[in-house]
């Protein structure tokens, strides 16, 4: 058996396709991006080496707008953690009590997760449509014409109008993770709390939630990292506009590279996105560890 397990030919053959793809499409490109980010380059002529100039521009130039996109992404992360996750948690807690039609509700809440973001984006553009969209029509019928807006076209509302569907879409995903976590908490613990006279609210808060901390940590990481990477829905709904009001790092990156041909500057944004994703994932893990001690 040992000889079979050390068959060099088989090892190479089995590892080759995955390794090759992983190297050429992920590992090497990351280093290429890192190198490009040090260039002033339009993708056509030869680039010139400018050192950290692109990174300095990222954080100092107001017209480039990176700091603003970063602010928007962090706002989205905050809203995800403090609005989306609590909604998911409440739904999961209610569902995990074992009520009738539990499976139906779980399945229904999960539907938006499965639908392509392009489809969801298109649907919401129609919901937000200033003339015929459902929101404005409902407001008109309620006699609230003054509340009507061109939701996606107005600099004051575009950012939140874009955030709503993003938050809406993934409530079901977090709900499912939390629900599965709550279901795996030993029912004996809950029973014990009940016998000791704890109300349902107290049982949830003091018994169930501490038990599912690892799941909550995972959800927080997903919510934050997902916010930093957010692209699809924003691209479909506003593409960052109007006047960069709803721009996030990834839409800015795509616009810089493929819209304005600023390959070097765009690569610097790409590197920052990777860095921030890793940075926040590690910070959140640390934060939860400190909490546990």
């Amino acid at each position: 058996m040992d000889r079979v397990r050390r068959n060099k030919g088989a090892i190479v053959l089995f590892m080759l396709p995955a390794t090759l793809l992983f190297l050429t499409i992920i590992i090497i490109p990351i280093f290429m991006s890192g190198y490009y980010s040090l260039l002033d380059w339009d993708g056509i002529t030869k680039g010139t080496f400018v050192g950290l100039q692109n990174y300095i521009e990222l954080f100092t130039s107001k017209s480039a707008g990176f700091t603003k996109t970063l602010g928007n992404a962090i706002l989205l992360a905050v809203l995800s953690v403090f609005i989306q996750l609590p909604i998911s948690l409440v739904l999961a807690l209610v569902l995990a009590k074992g009520i009738k039609r539990e499976r139906f509700f779980v399945s229904a809440f999960f539907v938006p997760v499965l639908i392509s973001t392009v489809v969801i984006g298109q649907l919401w553009t129609k919901i937000y449509n200033p003339e015929y969209g459902i929101i404005n029509v409902v407001l008109q019928n309620l006699g609230l014409e003054s509340w009507c807006r061109t939701w996606l076209g107005d600099q004051n509302t575009a950012l939140f109008a874009v955030f709503v569907p993003i938050l809406w879409q993934y409530v079901g995903y977090h709900m499912l993770l939390l629900y599965a976590g709550i279901k795996s908490v030993d029912p004996v613990l809950r029973e014990a709390a009940k016998i000791d006279g704890a109300t349902e609210w107290e049982t949830s808060w003091h018994v169930v939630i501490p038990m599912i901390k690892p799941v909550i940590r995972m959800c927080v990481i997903f919510a934050v990292v997902g916010s930093l990477k957010a692209f699809d829905l924003i691209y479909v709904l506003t593409n960052g506009g109007p006047a960069h009001a709803s721009e996030v790092p990834s839409t800015l990156m795509v616009n810089m590279i493929f819209g304005r041909g600023r390959y070097g500057f765009g690569s610097a944004i790409a590197i920052m996105i990777i860095f921030l994703c890793f940075f926040f994932a590690i910070m959140i893990k640390k934060f939860f560890k400190v909490e546990e001690e």
């Binding site: 499409i25 490109p29 290429m32 990292v225 692209f231 795509v254 690569s267 790409a270």
Partner: peptide, 18 residues
């Protein structure tokens, strides 16, 4: 471990080089 690193790398990282 290197493969598992791929779980956290966003596709943005690769789009221009690819």
């Amino acid at each position: 471990n290197i493969f598992m690193l791929g779980l956290t790398v966003p596709i943005h990282a690769a789009i221009l080089p690819v």
